[in-house]
Design a protein around this nucleic acid. Structure first.
Lengths: 153, 153
DNA sequence: TATTGTTATACTCTATAACTATA
DNA sequence: TATAGTTATAGAGTATAACAATA
């Protein structure tokens, strides 16, 4: 099942690196990566979706509707998400100057700092998880992963 | 931010395959993979955690407590998870013969069939997402991903 | 009429604490 | 006492439907 997270450790890395098909390898890798990110987010009392929210706000000032599109959520879900984030001082709502129906969401300084902490810790996890690879292997992995991401768009 | 999912499409695959560092590439890939799995699960009216549950039951007959360990959930969360899955006929509880406090959880034929449908659809998604790579590149990606998974254990 | 956002409602998912029943 | 599991409770997260305000 691709749905199983990195269940039991098996030991020997390279020896076992061949016993997974592409689907299982990518599924398990994705569970590992998301698990690490979720744990680092939890260290800052953030859920994965709150962390993603802060991420998309890093260089954007979207409306509620645009947040919904970016996160692929219903607009009503975004209302609750922003309510909770705003209550914690991570983001702010501000009225649009062009369209009086719209509300823009912005990252607060606190939100930006918290997000940076998550990213730094997560970066360390990724470094540790790929430390056994050579520099060339890491770059190859980066390149292949980026290629798959770019192709899907 | 590593937390941003595959936000906007950018077009040209290979041209952009170099503009992400390893952390971002793995984070975005993981969001893509998990998103695909979640959608295929949703097609069968399953959440990601329900799908993972069916996955770990494929070749196991764990107790409630073991399910909690496998999915890294509190035992009370597992009670609810199994309740909902049992209500839908996906799994069954059966009393342990050795320890009268324990309950074993087993996959029902329906649960197994539903899980297989999710896997098949997800496999197609992975195939499509990697179709632009050469056979050698796909195998290299599989090998590197499996190596990272194995190393983390 | 169409769009933006919120509210009301219902459900899943999760954890903590208290409980029951075994061991 | 310790462990397996459930229950009670609280809260985050999600969607659908109905609504208000604005376009």
């Amino acid at each position: 099942m691709p749905t199983a997270p990195p269940t039991e450790g098996r030991g020997k890395a390279r020896a076992d690196a061949g016993d997974l098909n592409l689907m299982d390898a990518l599924a398990q890798l994705s569970f590992m990566v998301q698990g690490a990110l979720a744990k680092r987010a939890a260290d800052q009392d953030l859920s994965l979706i709150q962390t993603r929210l802060l991420g998309v706000l890093r260089d954007r000032r979207p409306t509620m509707q645009e947040v919904a599109q970016l996160l692929e959520l219903d607009k009503s879900s975004v209302t609750g998400l922003i309510n909770r984030a705003e209550r914690r001082g991570l983001v702010q709502r501000s009225p649009s100057s062009e369209d009086r129906r719209s509300v823009h969401v912005t990252l607060s300084p606190v939100g930006r700092r918290v997000a940076q902490k998550v990213v730094r810790a997560f970066q360390h996890d990724i470094d540790a998880a790929t430390a056994h690879l050579t520099k060339a292997e890491r770059d190859r992995l980066r390149q292949l992963a980026a290629s798959v991401v770019a192709e899907a768009g």
